[in-house]
Simulated scan of single mutants.
Amino acid sequence: MTDDGTGQQARALHVFDMDGTLLAGSACLDLSARAGYLSSVEEMEDAWGRGEIGHVEFYDLLIPLWSELTHEDVDETFAKAGWIEGLREVLADIRSRGERSAVVSLSPHFFVRRLQAWGLDYAYGAGVEIGEPVLPERVYVPETKVTVVADLLAELRLGADRCVVYGDSSSDVPLFQRFPNSIAVNASSSLLPFAHVTYEGPDLASAYALGRSLLGDEAEEPPQP
């Protein structure tokens, strides 16, 4: 689809990283804590972040640790996760303006997609599943984010100037290098040199206000129903 579901073309796209940006910590750590393997996976994530293990190897090691998790476990972990304040309100405001929202994450798609129940339009993440072999071509790397966003903008018939990207870590560097309207949210030092603007704080609405200013229409009122 190239419109907002009402026959009107989408007016802008807001792209969010999930772990560390919308979610304190990471989905993988939260799920691993639920499964009883938090310490082991913390060490794995540290090694992953240092480049000592690759993205596919990380999931090859991780997925077996989640073998006992049920859909109910995942639902409860999602509901109890440390989401940033104002997330649902921001997603609602984006949609009210005829714009679209997307989350593009290296974490599992089965976790990311649950945000659609809160008003997210597009969910993208690693195509791994509990109890199934890891397919390398379905595991995301940082460069995958650029491809996903470029394809989505083409589908929506939007230029890069109508896209705002929000992230927090080195995995967002390729995205920030490609799309100039970029906001570092509670970010690591590795991302800050690539950000157009930065935000530190607990409220997504404040970071989103910066995004609106980059679009040049921060004073615009949401369309009336």
Score class of each variant (00 low, 15 high):
111 F>P: 14
117 A>I: 06
114 R>C: 11
109 H>D: 15
187 A>D: 03
152 L>G: 07
82 G>H: 15
132 E>G: 03
139 V>H: 08
184 A>K: 08
31 L>D: 04
114 R>W: 04
115 L>H: 08
60 D>R: 13
41 V>Q: 01
139 V>T: 01
71 H>I: 10
44 M>P: 02
37 Y>T: 10
190 S>Y: 02
124 Y>N: 00
88 R>I: 11
36 G>D: 13
6 T>N: 10
155 E>D: 11
211 G>R: 03
123 A>E: 02
162 R>N: 13
194 F>P: 00
12 A>R: 12
167 G>W: 01
135 L>R: 14
46 D>C: 06
11 R>E: 09
5 G>C: 03
41 V>D: 04
15 V>Y: 09
207 A>Y: 05
182 S>Y: 09
83 W>A: 14
61 L>K: 15
65 L>E: 02
7 G>H: 07
118 W>A: 10
159 G>C: 05
77 T>S: 06
135 L>F: 00
193 P>H: 12
90 V>S: 02
206 S>T: 15
71 H>P: 07
72 E>K: 15
202 P>W: 10
92 A>L: 07
190 S>M: 05
64 P>D: 10
154 A>S: 15
124 Y>P: 02
152 L>A: 11
41 V>K: 05
175 L>R: 01
54 G>A: 13
72 E>F: 11
192 L>F: 12
189 S>E: 09
191 L>C: 11
5 G>L: 03
102 A>R: 10
